[in-house]
Simulated assay, not measured.
Amino acid sequence: MTGPGTRLIDTVAWIHLRDGRILGTRTRGKELFYIPGGKRHDGESDVQTLLREVEEELTVAIVPGSVAHVGTYEAPVDRRTPDVVVRMACYTGDHRGTLAASSEIEEIAWLSYADRGRVPPVDQLVFDELRAAGELS
């Protein structure tokens, strides 16, 4: 999907499912929900990025030994900017602590497939795959 003239946004995300729903976060001032995670800092591995971002956003600690890669997805950031592509490496992992919105996060929610229109294109790919696997209601 990426090619000449394309700007890539490299991100890592945490797939956290409960009772057929996926955890979503909404940043202050934004309308869309996102799968928790964020951009990699220079020199960070996927797991380092995942642990840092989830702790910053949700005040929980991911257990490093429990982290498993689910898939990597790419999609334009939105329809208006098809030359900006988000690459999102997605992982599952157990956590310690109580989920709570922190930092720039205004709201957390448990989303079903019916909420697909409330997430960006790259997250929609994850929703589609989880739905096809029977993991998202």
Rank of each mutant, 00 (worst) to 15 (best):
E55W: 06
G20H: 04
A133Q: 14
G37I: 10
A132P: 01
T81W: 06
R116Y: 01
P64Q: 13
Y73G: 12
E44G: 11
L99A: 04
E135V: 07
P64T: 05
Y113W: 00
V84W: 02
E31Y: 11
V86I: 14
D115P: 04
I62G: 05
R131K: 13
Q124F: 01
V47E: 12
I108G: 02
R28V: 12
A68I: 12
R21P: 09
H41D: 08
T27F: 15
T98N: 02
V60Q: 08
G3E: 13
G29D: 02
I22N: 09
Q48M: 12
P121M: 14
F127N: 08
S66Y: 08
R18Y: 10
A133P: 03
V63P: 04
D128Q: 04
E107P: 03
T25V: 12
R87T: 09
I35P: 04
T49V: 13
R21W: 14
E135H: 10
Q124W: 03
F33M: 02
G117S: 09
I105P: 07
V47G: 03
T59C: 05
A68V: 12
A100W: 08
S112L: 04
T27C: 15
G38F: 00
S102M: 09
R26F: 11
T2M: 14
T59Q: 15
G65N: 13
Y113P: 01
V86G: 05
S137C: 15
R28P: 02
Y91H: 12
I15K: 02
A132E: 09
L23F: 11
P4N: 13
D94W: 02
G38N: 11
Y91S: 09
G97Q: 09
A114S: 13
E56H: 02
R26H: 13
G20I: 06
R79C: 04
L130K: 03
V84M: 01
L58A: 13
T98R: 06
P82Y: 03
H16I: 00
K39M: 08
E129G: 13
M88I: 02
D123Q: 06
D128T: 10
G24K: 06
R80A: 15
A109L: 09
T25H: 08
R116Q: 14
L50Q: 05
V60D: 07
T2P: 10
A89T: 13
R87C: 04
A100S: 12
E135L: 15
E106Q: 07
G71V: 02
S112K: 12
D123I: 01
L125V: 14
Q124R: 13
A109S: 13
D19P: 03
P121L: 14
R79W: 09
G117W: 02
A89R: 13
G43T: 12
H95T: 07
K30W: 15
A100P: 02
R21D: 08
V122S: 02
T81P: 00
V47Y: 01
I105Q: 06
V86M: 03
V126Y: 00
P82W: 07
